[in-house]
Amino acid sequence: MAILVCAEYQGQQLNMASLQALSAAKDIKAHTATDLVVLLASSDEALLSAAQSIEGVDQVIGFSGDTSALSLAENLAPTIVSIIKSSDISHLVSAATTQAKNVLPRVAGLMDVAQISEITSVVDQETFVRPIYAGNALATVRSSDQLKVITVRSSAFEAADTQGGSASLSIHSDIVDSGLSSFIGETLVKSDRPELASADVIISGGRGMQNGDNFSLLENVADTLGAAVGASRAAVDAGFVSNDMQVGQTGKIVAPNLYIAVGISGAIQHLAGMKDSKVIVAINKDDEAPIFNVADYGVVADLFDVLPELNQQLSDRN
């Protein structure tokens, strides 16, 4: 029996979220005494070797040749299915990235099993905790399926150690091309700032920012703190910033050490995305804004006064 973890990468780096999902897989492994197998849709030797070094991994499955077809769910899902059917897989696990959200339910559908989405803890090998209703309730659920397909809310787990492992490598050469779809292109937002999903500090803006240009005030503070910049759905809906910055129930779920909410009222959909942050700061001129009910520290003042002052004082400290 084995737990199969679908890992992802960007450039030459394994995704932090995948390393966190690996910790969830290790928690499952603690109940089942089984092998931990990492699947990486890449033929890059350095990347595969990095996956082999992850602590606790028994086997890495990589590919040979051109793996570009695997960027599409219509091809990756049946490829994963063929691996599951040729091995003895009890759990299929991946971080709940947009890629896994796209692909894993397709795998589950092809395998005729249910999926358990965005688990935040492992009770035993068939029982998991997951948030429902935008995190306003926590459900403990038990699966009776032979194969358990699971996505992991990565912010709930520590990253697995990238060193200390010596996994074996096997190359899967059979890439399914379903011919159902084709990849046209990607427009990725380039930023020198940390990624939202793995940043230690996040500063987010809401409707109170008034327009997209004013987000430069947040960016200044972010650059001083080495923070990522996020946004509420209201700010995205109003067209201030792009959707990949959205923190919330249907955007990104984050749990940094410090989350600074600026001009964000605190709708439950936004709280769902950030309320597990270690320390929350709210800056809002409306002292009745619900964000203050979850904030450790509140500043009741005009954000256009506070942000320049905050940036100045932080810069002076450095």
Partner: peptide
């Protein structure tokens, strides 16, 4: 269903903190 709900609980509530007077 092949998935059964064992229990549904409310998440631990976060307590409201303090209002600070200034940026410093």
């Amino acid at each position: 269903p092949s998935i059964t709900t064992v229990a549904v609980i409310e998440p631990a509530a976060r307590e409201a903190g303090i209002i600070v007077p200034d940026v410093a």
